[in-house]
């Protein structure tokens, strides 16, 4: 342990003491990477708040939630950004979060009236494929009947994986297990996270991969590559809404509230589409960037209400495991 303390001393000695108030925002890792929204948002907020915005990261949304629960009331976070609608029930139950006091004109496909969680972006899960793929399936049943190969993520370790689980459950209810059984021979493999799955798809390991309807926009905007497309499914598409909330234990409640309000402004929202590759929760003044307009628009949006999500999730996981373990 001697080495540890020594190394810590060396590291700490170089840190300067901040005079300005500091706002600590916990978020998932890809949000703050140099290619994510973090750096631009930090700059924009610091220009108005007279404070130091400090991002702290933890894996993904579920890891973030686990971190907050590990820390409990002693958490150093003022704001948590990066939970989604599958985690809000558990987050609410901890009683660690305070009302946001934010009202905005959201551009969500559903009504949003939550007093604690502020949505900052959203998207639809979808299967992405190459445009040259023939006979693109129109729904899960057609996919199951086809010879197409898909790669999905494990719901136990991945957010999109969990999204797909709830998507099938929301669309098929009691028939969900049978749908999974029929899909079993289409599934090449199940990966730990989104990156593995998408990487394998790009390498040509499968015809389709579970991702978002917005994924093709990345290829169009960043790579001028128009060969990727998301398949529109007739059942509708399951939504992911990503939210932020402030902690009741925060020592900077005003600043935290100011940040939550900032989330709904143009300065935040206009950064989202081309950095987080999701739809903005509030439509920025300039509208959506070119490349987002040609994306598939699901006929209807599926979302299991928060109160039922946990129970549905457990049943759906048990069905998924039993259908795919045979």
């Amino acid at each position: 342990m001697k080495h540890l303390t020594f190394a810590a001393g060396v590291l700490c000695a170089t840190g300067a003491f901040a005079q300005t108030p500091e706002l600590t925002v916990y978020t998932y890792d890809s949000f703050v990477s140099d290619w994510g929204p973090g750096p631009q948002i930090e700059k924009a907020f610091e220009a108005t708040c007279g404070c130091d915005l400090k991002f702290v990261t933890a894996g993904d949304g579920a890891a973030l939630m686990a971190r907050i629960r590990l820390e409990g009331e002693r958490t150093g976070a003022d704001v948590v950004l990066g939970l989604d609608t599958n985690l809000t029930a558990a987050a609410r139950a901890t009683n660690l979060f305070a009302p946001s006091g934010v009202e905005a004109d959201y551009a969500l496909p559903i009504e949003w009236s939550d007093d604690t969680f502020v949505p900052y972006d959203w998207g639809y899960f979808a299967f992405v494929h190459n445009t040259k793929l023939e006979h693109v399936p129109q729904d899960f049943l057609e996919l199951a009947r086809s010879d197409l190969k898909i790669i999905i993520q494990d719901p136990r370790s991945s957010t999109p994986g969990l999204g797909l689980l709830l998507w099938v459950k929301a669309a098929y209810g009691d028939q969900a297990e049978q749908v999974w059984k029929d899909l079993a021979d289409n599934i090449v493999t199940v990966t730990k996270g989104w990156s593995e799955a998408y990487g394998l798809f790009l390498e040509g390991e499968a015809d389709m991969v579970l991702s978002y309807t917005t994924s093709p926009a990345y290829h169009v905007i960043a790579e001028s590559d128009t060969t990727k497309e998301a398949a529109a499914f007739d059942e509708g598409h399951y939504m992911q809404i990503e939210v932020a909330a402030r902690l009741a234990s925060s020592k900077q409640p005003e600043l935290a509230q100011q940040f939550l309000q900032f989330i709904t402004t143009d300065a935040f929202q206009s950064v989202i589409p081309t950095t987080n590759w999701m739809y903005p929760a509030v439509m920025p003044e300039g509208g959506l960037p070119e490349g987002f307009n040609d994306l598939v628009e699901p006929r209807n949006s599926l979302l299991i209400p928060e109160a039922e999500a946990e129970a549905v999730r457990d049943t759906a996981l048990a069905e998924w495991l039993s259908a795919l373990s045979q």
Binding site: A62, A66, D154, R156, S157, V190, K192
Partner: peptide
């Protein structure tokens, strides 16, 4: 991650994945 991906699905669930599930899920 290796076991899950190369194993082809939830049949290839290892203890470490069960730990992940217990921790995150």
């Amino acid at each position: 991650a290796v076991a899950l991906t190369l194993g082809g699905g939830p049949k290839a669930t290892t203890i470490e994945l069960a730990i992940y599930q217990a921790f995150r899920f």
